[in-house]
Amino acid sequence: ENVVSAPMPGKVLRVLVRVGDRVRVGQGLLVLEAMKMENEIPSPRDGVVKRILVKEGEIVDTGQPLIELG
């Protein structure tokens, strides 16, 4: 699984990683606000951040690609 998608609609509050960062399974990639709750979106696997597909403040839909892992 190379693309991390939004599990719910919401607003991207914070991106916690940068392109080139090594991440571990379960590590927070970004914080999504949904229904006034902050939800940290975890990495599904170990890898390297290849691309960040959203910006802070952006509104996303369920299933929208957020981050690509390499």
Rank of each mutant, 00 (worst) to 15 (best):
E1I: 02
E1T: 13
E1W: 01
N2V: 14
N2R: 03
N2E: 14
N2F: 10
N2C: 00
N2Y: 02
N2K: 08
N2I: 07
V3W: 02
V3F: 10
V3I: 06
V3C: 01
V4P: 09
V4L: 02
V4E: 05
V4Q: 10
V4G: 03
S5G: 06
S5E: 04
A6N: 04
A6K: 01
P7E: 09
P7L: 10
P7I: 06
P7S: 07
M8F: 11
M8R: 06
M8I: 14
M8E: 09
P9M: 10
P9I: 09
P9E: 03
P9C: 01
P9H: 15
G10F: 12
G10R: 01
G10I: 02
G10M: 01
K11L: 13
K11D: 06
V12C: 01
L13E: 07
L13V: 14
L13K: 12
L13S: 15
R14H: 08
R14T: 08
V15Y: 15
V15D: 11
V15Q: 03
V15F: 12
L16P: 11
L16N: 14
L16C: 01
L16M: 02
V17L: 02
V17S: 15
V17Y: 02
V17G: 10
V17H: 11
R18K: 12
R18T: 10
R18A: 06
R18Y: 11
V19R: 14
V19E: 02
G20P: 04
G20H: 11
G20L: 13
D21P: 04
D21C: 01
D21Y: 01
R22M: 15
R22D: 12
R22F: 10
V23F: 06
V23H: 07
R24C: 01
R24N: 09
R24H: 09
R24S: 09
R24Q: 14
R24K: 05
V25K: 15
V25D: 15
V25L: 05
G26M: 11
G26P: 13
G26H: 10
G26E: 14
G26L: 06
G26K: 06
G26I: 08
Q27Y: 06
G28L: 08
G28C: 01
G28I: 08
L29K: 00
L29G: 01
L29W: 03
L29M: 06
L29R: 00
L30F: 04
L30N: 02
L30I: 09
L30K: 00
L30E: 01
L30G: 05
L30P: 00
V31P: 00
V31W: 13
V31Q: 10
L32S: 07
L32M: 03
L32D: 00
L32T: 08
L32E: 14
E33P: 02
E33R: 07
E33N: 15
E33Y: 12
E33C: 00
E33I: 08
A34S: 12
A34M: 07
A34F: 11
M35T: 09
M35V: 09
M35R: 10
M35Y: 11
M35S: 12
M35L: 04
M35C: 00
K36E: 12
K36P: 05
K36C: 01
K36T: 14
M37W: 09
M37F: 15
M37G: 04
M37R: 09
E38K: 08
E38T: 13
N39S: 11
N39A: 04
N39F: 08
N39K: 13
E40K: 05
E40P: 08
I41D: 00
I41C: 01
I41Y: 12
I41M: 14
P42V: 04
P42K: 15
P42N: 08
S43T: 15
S43F: 12
S43G: 12
P44W: 03
P44S: 15
P44Q: 07
P44E: 10
D46T: 03
D46M: 03
D46W: 03
G47F: 12
G47P: 00
G47I: 12
V48K: 07
V48C: 00
V48Q: 14
V49Y: 02
V49N: 07
V49L: 09
V49G: 05
K50N: 12
K50Y: 06
K50T: 14
K50G: 08
R51W: 05
R51S: 09
I52P: 15
I52S: 11
I52N: 03
I52C: 00
I52L: 03
I52A: 04
L53K: 11
L53T: 11
L53V: 14
L53G: 15
V54I: 13
V54A: 05
V54T: 05
V54Q: 06
K55Q: 09
K55V: 09
K55Y: 04
E56F: 12
E56Q: 03
E56H: 09
G57D: 06
G57Y: 13
G57R: 10
G57N: 10
E58A: 14
E58T: 09
E58N: 13
E58D: 13
E58H: 07
E58M: 04
I59T: 05
I59Y: 15
I59E: 02
V60P: 01
V60L: 05
V60E: 01
V60K: 02
D61L: 15
D61Y: 08
D61N: 03
D61G: 03
D61A: 05
T62V: 03
T62C: 00
T62F: 07
T62E: 07
G63R: 14
G63T: 02
Q64T: 13
Q64D: 03
P65V: 07
L66V: 12
L66H: 00
L66Y: 04
L66N: 03
I67D: 00
I67G: 15
I67Q: 15
E68N: 05
E68F: 03
E68H: 00
E68A: 03
E68T: 01
E68M: 02
L69G: 11
L69Y: 11
L69D: 04
L69N: 15
G70M: 11
G70D: 03
G70Y: 09
G70K: 03
G70S: 14
